[in-house]
Write a protein that binds this DNA or RNA. Structure first.
Length: 465
RNA sequence: GGCGUCGUGGCCAAGUGGUAAGGCAAGGGUCUGCAAAACCCUCAUCACGGGUCCGAAUCCCGUCGACGCCUCCA
């Protein structure tokens, strides 16, 4: 039984879907006004892993991830660059999609955008006004009336009274209550705007997600996800809007990932401590970022630095070692040992599932996988043939792909391989003549070109990396 | 100030009542001409102080500390 920690109840709960074997999952995407950084990569990876695991468990996942393509940040940046805001948003959407692809993240089924959901947004705003949950203010904005919503604050565990103290009301706002938030914002000159019953304007930050949910997945969904920095106010407000509008529970499970930390602080655009996804991928493999995420609990802060990245990279190497071919002189191991290896593979598969079923406990799942790697390597050392290793390696590959790890050996240009083979062959002759310094020289030079040579009693193997 | 999460070996990190998984690093060993890889061995009593219990990292109280949110944010 899959259990998932639900932010709403602060407990792990048995996961049950509204519709048999179908998971409706909505994940809050990004506001597209700048290059994405590795913090965004983390959240995207977390939900990619969740999605892959749900599919592995036999669910059909309706995965929706939105793009917020109209808001203050985009408009400001567009003004800076003297670019059309919508074109700028499009540019960053394309860019972000490419980042996700490079990170081996499966594309969501649907990527709705605020600007393409105007009809539903206005329908909701209208409905909320009719039901008394919202009001058009004198300044042309439409606000949600938090005092009308009895359980406002249930997701973030806040009470309206507690929040009032710290609430800041900007001058000129026409709110009834300081915590009321905008559903619709009247357009200022030069801003992108849409016609509405309340005059030209654009949607507030939160309503778009409610509307996109309604449009793409319906009134109720199974999982709503995002970073834990969105719990308040964004998700709190989504709940308020959606549930006030439909009168039904909005999302059954709220899943939130922890923040990526750089130098002890959350990585964020406003703090400026940013490592871009593209920058990261120019230095390290996508698997490394994924391994870093897998090494920790998705809800906890993730420490991002050279030390943790190096460890992740080495850990990956270790997983890859399990996939290597049998030794050149493999004579086979007794059938008893071979079937033991297969039982180990089955046991690992079971521990893996148990771990992942417990709120996606990836560190524990990885521990299980490492156990299998050790068993495979031991069998190989004992002389297992490729045929004997294959079933266990198949399981290893399968489990890693559930986590989204590719474990690709590095590759050079394919043409080089033949020449390296030749060089290695010649070096073997040189070694037979015990010309060690020459053979070591070849090994060192190849190493600096990215080719690793490994000698053993039975022969020499080489690989990229 | 309020709300929330959390504090496990050099680093990352599982473990929520019965005497501490895994990875990285380090040291020793097998193998090797040397090296690399792989394999074997070694390496923590769980922030601090009280309490409950036959028994606590795990429950309760307190203290200290970290991080997130309360304002745009994955």
């Amino acid at each position: 039984m899959l259990r998932i920690y639900n932010t709403l109840t602060r407990k792990k709960e048995d996961f049950q879907t509204l519709e048999l074997n179908v998971v409706k999952m909505y994940v809050c995407g990004v506001t597209v006004y700048n290059d994405a950084h590795v913090g965004h990569a983390m959240f995207a990876l977390v939900f990619d892993i969740i999605r892959r695991y749900l599919e592995y468990r036999g669910y059909k996942v309706k995965h929706v991830m939105n793009y917020t393509d109209v808001d203050d940040k985009i408009i400001n940046r567009a003004n800076q660059l003297k670019e059309d805001p919508l074109e700028l948003a499009q540019r960053y959407i394309d860019d972000y999609a490419q980042n996700l692809k490079d990170l081996n993240i499966l594309p969501a089924a649907i990527n709705p955008r605020a600007t393409q959901t105007m009809g539903e947004i206005q329908t909701m705003v209208k409905g909320l006004i009719e039901k008394g949950f919202a009001y058009a203010a004198s300044n042309g904005d439409v606000y949600f009336r938090v005092t009308k919503d009895p359980d406002y604050g249930k997701l973030s565990g806040r009470k309206l009274e507690d929040m009032q103290a710290g609430a800041r009301v900007e001058v000129g706002e026409a709110k009834e209550h300081p915590m009321d938030f905008a559903l619709w914002k009247a357009a200022k000159p030069g801003e992108p705007s849409w016609d509405s019953p309340w005059g030209k304007g654009r949607p507030g930050w939160h309503i778009e997600c409610s509307a996109m949910n309604l449009k793409e997945l319906g009134e109720q969904i199974d999982i709503h996800g995002g970073g834990n920095d969105l719990i308040f106010p964004h998700h709190e407000n989504e709940i308020a809007q959606s549930e006030s509008f439909t009168g039904k529970q909005f999302a059954r499970f709220w899943i939130h990932n922890g923040m990526l930390q750089l130098g002890g602080e959350k990585m964020s655009k406003s703090l400026g401590n940013i490592v871009g996804i593209r920058e990261f991928l120019s230095k390290r493999d996508a698997d490394v970022m994924r391994m870093l995420v897998l090494a920790g609990n998705y809800r906890a802060p993730l420490i991002f630095n050279d030390e943790t990245l190096d460890a992740a990279e080495k850990s990956l190497e270790r997983l890859k070692s399990g996939l290597r071919a049998a030794r050149p002189d493999a004579k086979g191991i007794p059938s008893g040992s071979a079937s033991e290896l297969m039982s180990q593979a089955e046991a690992t598969q079971q521990s893996f599932t148990n771990a992942m079923d417990d709120d996606f406990n990836t560190p524990l799942a990885l521990a299980a996988i490492h156990e299998l790697v050790k068993a495979i390597n031991t069998a190989r050392d004992e002389g297992a043939t490729d045929d004997q290793l294959k079933p266990a390696q198949f399981t290893l590959r399968e489990l890693n792909s559930v986590l989204g790890l590719r474990l690709q050996e590095k590759k050079g240009s394919g043409d080089a391989d033949k020449f390296i083979d030749l060089l290695v062959e010649v070096r073997s002759e040189v070694r037979k003549q015990k010309l060690w310094s020459l053979s070591d020289q070849i090994r060192d030079k190849l190493k600096s070109l990215g080719v690793t040579i490994e000698d053993s009693k039975e022969g020499t193997t080489w690989r990229w990396g």
